[in-house]
């Protein structure tokens, strides 16, 4: 059994985002980059399945420019077995990314394909579901618990009203939510070991896929600021008073 995990390099979640002066995007120069936190959870889940001997190999795929190798290396240092970098300098949309991933899911014959539920940069929350649709594989999104049962996966999902459990046959697509697990830190020996794990580097155009972006980003702006500044109050009576008499809410 094989697991394929898709990872994305994004601006670290602790960085304060700044919009570029010319409104063409956000500032990425000299900004700390990390693996998308949901993808770390995806890598961790694959490793846990491997530790339970439920799968034999974990392949990590990432799409982007050369520096994405760093992100793949972090996944290898956590415990993935090998990496694939699909090289392109274009920023691709979820549909395009899913078409590339479909190619590798089929080529690698992945049984369990795990993705983060969303990337914290574009916040789309689409790629896993699109991939499920393209492959016509069953999907379980926003997973908070994953159990293997016979030849299927029992997945608990976070939904609007609470939790839902699905049973999906293999091969399948799973997307991770925050509470699925807590990703491990790579140990120093494992970081060293990861340096010799293989990463295949493939130019996107070599794959001969029909891929075009459908959306055009016209502009990226800073959000409107909240007007005014905070009024600090001395005690709870003042608070009740402003909410009642000034804001007219209570």
């Amino acid at each position: 059994m094989k697991a394929l995990v898709a990872v994305k390099r994004v601006i670290d979640y602790n960085v304060k985002i700044r919009v570029k002066q010319d409104n063409s995007g956000v500032e990425k120069e000299n900004v700390k980059m990390s693996m998308n936190p949901f993808d770390e959870i995806a890598v961790e889940e694959a490793i846990r399945l491997k530790e339970k001997n439920l799968i034999d190999e974990i392949v990590v795929v990432s799409i982007g420019s050369d520096n994405v190798q760093e992100t793949i290396r972090s996944a290898l240092a956590m415990g993935a077995d090998r990496g694939i970098l699909v090289k392109t300098d274009n920023e691709l949309e979820p549909l395009a990314i899913a078409k590339i991933l479909k190619y590798f899911v089929e080529k690698e014959e992945s049984d369990i394909t795990i993705l983060g539920k969303q990337a914290i940069d574009d916040d789309y929350n689409q790629t896993g579901q699109i991939l499920g649709g393209l492959l016509n594989y069953p999907q379980a999104t926003f997973a908070s618990k994953v159990i293997k049962e016979d030849n299927a996966m029992l997945v608990t999902r976070e939904i609007d009203g609470g939790l839902e459990t699905l049973k999906i046959n293999l091969p399948c697509i799973i997307t991770t939510d925050l509470r699925l697990n807590e990703p491990r830190y790579a140990s120093l020996p494992n970081i060293m070991k990861a340096k010799s794990k293989p990463i295949d580097i493939i130019e996107l155009k070599e794959l001969n896929l029909e891929i075009t972006n459908r959306l055009e980003i016209l502009e990226v702006k800073a959000p409107p600021e909240r007007g005014g500044s905070v009024k600090m109050l001395d005690n709870y009576s003042e608070l009740i008073d402003v909410l009642k008499n000034k804001e007219g809410i209570l």
Binding site: L95, N125, Q126, Q129, G132, G133, F142, D160
Partner: peptide, 23 residues
């Protein structure tokens, strides 16, 4: 937007070869 539509809209999009604009 919500977990219900997030779950199926992109999958539907894949079937129609469309790129949704979410949220």
């Amino acid at each position: 937007s919500g977990t219900f539509s997030k779950n199926f809209i992109p999958r539907l999009a894949a079937n129609l070869d469309l790129q949704p604009v979410t949220d």
